[in-house]
Structures are given as C-alpha cells and as structure tokens.
C-alpha cells in the first residue's frame, strides 16, 4: 500500500485527535497530546480503516527534559502498525489507562509505573511489578539517584558465614 494512502487512512480514522501523522513503510508514527490519548488509541483500535487491535508494545522514555509514552499497535491482517507517542508532564506524570481496552497492556502499564512512576488512571491494579514492593524511587527516570544497596536480608544478619563471607 502506498505510504500516502496509509497516512490518509490513519488521519481519517484519527480525525483531529493526532498532532502529527507520518507514514514510513508499513509503520505509521502518530503523535498525540495527553488529553486525546485514550480517544486516539480507541479510534485506532475500533476504526475499520486502521483496525490496530493488537497491543504490540508499550513503553516510555525519559530524556531528562521530557517524558514520553510509546505505544505500538499492530493490525495483523493488514500488516501495518502504528507507533503512538504521547508526551507527559514530567513533574506529575499521569496518563489514562487502556488496560480495559487491551488486557495485554495491564502488565506493561504496571511496568511503566514501576520504572517511571507514571500513574495510569483507571488501572485496576497499579502496583510495582518487577522491583520489590518497598523500593524507593523510579529507576528509569533520569533524575534517579542510585543508592548503595544494603544487605539483601532484612532482620537479623546471618552469623554463620564462616570464613567464606
């Protein structure tokens, strides 16, 4: 499919929700503002023009100045995919949860919360997923300061390490 046509399809499906749409090969890069995020993702999923119903990936990145959410949705029969980026407020990162649209994104959102502290509003179970529950801070943010790790065991220390320890 021609790239121009692909771009048109996506622009048609998204209406005015997207800030920018670019097509490159079978990949469509979409930039969305935070207030329109959920509506745009829903449109991508349900619109017959785009039919991106496969939740391929969700992640975030932090440049130090800006934090961005990155969704990748694919349409399996049509062989195209959309890379949706959405800048966040770095001081108070919040985003609407789409775990109800795609249960597959449930854990991905938890992971982004775990690493970046993005609060997904409406997420059914927003807890840490990879790090221990009592971990302090969000390690993938650029302003995270790593602490020297203490002893791995809490409570009384083992005393019988002998000469090996």
């Amino acid at each position: 499919m021609a790239q121009a046509e692909l771009k048109e399809r996506f622009e048609g499906a998204l209406g005015g929700l997207a800030e920018a749409v670019e097509a490159e090969g079978s990949l469509v890069r979409v930039r969305v503002a935070l207030p329109n995020l959920r509506a745009a993702l829903l449109a991508l999923k349900t619109s017959p023009d785009t039919a991106c119903d496969f939740p391929a990936n969700l992640t975030a990145f932090d440049t130090g100045q800006e934090m961005t959410l990155l969704y990748r949705l694919a349409s399996i029969p049509n062989r195209w995919q959309a890379l949706v980026s959405c800048p966040l407020d770095r001081e108070d990162p919040k985003a609407p949860s789409v775990a109800d649209l795609w249960p597959g994104f449930n854990w991905f959102e938890r992971e982004v919360y775990d690493m970046f502290g993005v609060a997904f509003e409406g997420h059914p179970d927003l807890r840490r997923i990879l790090l221990p529950d009592d971990w302090e801070g969000f390690p993938f943010r650029k302003d995270y300061v790593s602490k020297p790790s203490g002893s791995p065991l809490k409570g009384p220390q083992p005393t019988d390490l002998g000469e090996q320890a």
Binding site: A56, N57, T59, F61, T63, L70, P103, G104, F108, E111
Partner: peptide, 25 residues
C-alpha cells in the same frame, strides 16, 4: 525499542519480551 540522543550510549532501551506479554494471560 531503542531511543538515541546522538551520544555513544543509548538513551533508552526497552525490551518487549514475548514471555512477559504471554504471561499476562
């Protein structure tokens, strides 16, 4: 997924692990 800022180190690397997604079910 790799994000570059032009420096010799990647700015962000994200690994979409198939097992992670499959385990959600």
């Amino acid at each position: 997924t790799m994000v570059s800022d032009g420096s010799p180190n990647p700015q962000r690397v994200h690994i979409r692990a198939p097992s992670f997604a499959n385990l959600t079910v």
